[in-house]
Design a protein around this nucleic acid. Structure first.
Lengths: 237, 237
DNA sequence: TCGCAAGTTTGATTCAGATCATACCGGCGG
DNA sequence: CCGCCGGTATGATCTGAATCAAACTTGCGA
């Protein structure tokens, strides 16, 4: 196992900017080595289930590349998407030793896998590193709350507009074309995330296109034609 | 200032059970003293605003007694309740140095107030204590996700049933009567939390009462008459 | 005691999204 | 080239929560 290679890769998931300041938190070289001592890099194809809700929570994962969805199947057959996860995100939310959601790769993904016990011990030892994780989880909480606002909206068009903004904010960086929004997930997934049926997503998308705000190019991507108006729609709650 | 008194009070907010194990995390005596060195106990009357969204985030608070609501006022005049917070909960979610939500006392409350900088430094120094906070924030994330499921439901009666269960899970303990549910917040607050209008909350409540599941005793409390059926309704998504 | 005001209930109507049904599209194996 | 199939779009209808409106209830201060 090539540590040097892993260290280099880990720098690509430096987690996040802290909520209280402007500067980005980056792990020190030493901390990266420590993390990699307990972590393993794994690559998975699209559609692969990473873990299932209810199974024993043995690992925490960090997304390095690709998109992952976290969901719960409800009794009525519907699927509630808890979150879409992107590079830099952590996955492995558990309760009483068992995973809360089922997590599945949407695209081919690269993950880092950490045994929960080892990670816990490491974090307790290294307060600075733990703080990076604390900040990250706090960020996830903020995003979850923001998403609730999205779902609380009544109008389908506004929800889809918000969803597009959401994807832009998470996959926008690094893209060659700032106005192209990749949509690796299905309409069904979008519907589950936005609290709509897939028919409504389809209709709302058509409406956005009709209004000249967005052009859907195939099923897997969209082009933003009028960003200011889209932003207004999305934030017009 | 009576430290001994404060230490005793702090034991009443031992935060949470960790997600990965069964045993409750309790701070050591030393840790409590450390926390209190930087913390201040404050009592506030009902309706008092603790902080406003957008203001500089200088403090983190821990709820010791009472109920607090966290919300955002939306452009359309509506109010989205981000969370209700109970004893043991942390408040002070911020982004780039500014609070995300406005936070207001629903009942008279007792809080512990910690300067963010001091708390940050303390947590980085004491990995064990920080871990208690990490677990707490993780718990908040789980709750936020569960709430999204609540809001995603379409039927008003089910949402109100879920809301009642939610309150029971947070205020149930310590109550003399396990079937009495205190409702310190207004119908409007409930509506904001459940993603309904207050009229719908009112009608759904009446419907629950008509079906013999719940009896509302004044505006501030309800009595669960048929818990099993209420649970089924709440989880029947 | 009265009267006000905030909060709540109840009623009538509207409307957007769910639902049910059917048609379409694009990729892939044979 | 065909036919299948998962995913998507479109159309018709239904439903239940939002909305608008008005009455009622409760607590509280004059």
């Amino acid at each position: 196992m090539n540590i040097a290679h892993h260290v280099a890769s880990l720098t690509s998931i430096p987690f996040l900017t802290p909520p209280t300041g402007g500067e980005t938190v980056v792990l020190t070289e030493h901390q990266r080595v420590e993390l990699l001592r307990i972590g393993l890099r794994v690559r998975l194809p699209a559609r692969m289930t990473i873990y299932r809700a209810g199974s024993r929570a043995q690992w925490v994962f960090a997304v390095a590349e690709g998109v992952v969805k976290s969901y719960r199947d409800l009794r009525n057959g519907k699927r509630d998407i808890a979150a879409f996860l992107f590079p830099r995100d952590l996955i492995g939310l558990s309760e009483k030793g068992h995973y809360v959601n089922t997590v599945q790769a949407v695209t081919p993904v690269t993950l880092y896998r950490f045994p929960l016990d080892d990670l816990t011990a490491l974090l307790k030892r290294d307060g600075e590193m733990q703080f990076v994780f604390l900040v990250k989880v706090t960020d996830a909480l903020r995003r979850s709350q923001r998403r609730t606002i999205l779902v609380n909206r009544r109008d389908a068009v506004g929800r889809v507009a918000m969803f597009l903004m959401f994807i832009m904010n998470n996959l926008g960086r690094g893209g060659t074309d700032a106005h192209r929004v990749p949509l690796p997930m299905t309409r069904s997934d979008i519907a589950g995330f936005a609290g709509l049926t897939l028919e409504s997503v389809s209709r709302a998308s058509a409406e956005l296109e009709r209004r000249g705000l967005v052009k859907f190019e195939g099923r897997q991507s969209a082009r933003i034609l009028d960003l200011p108006r889209l932003v207004r729609l999305a934030t017009a709650v």
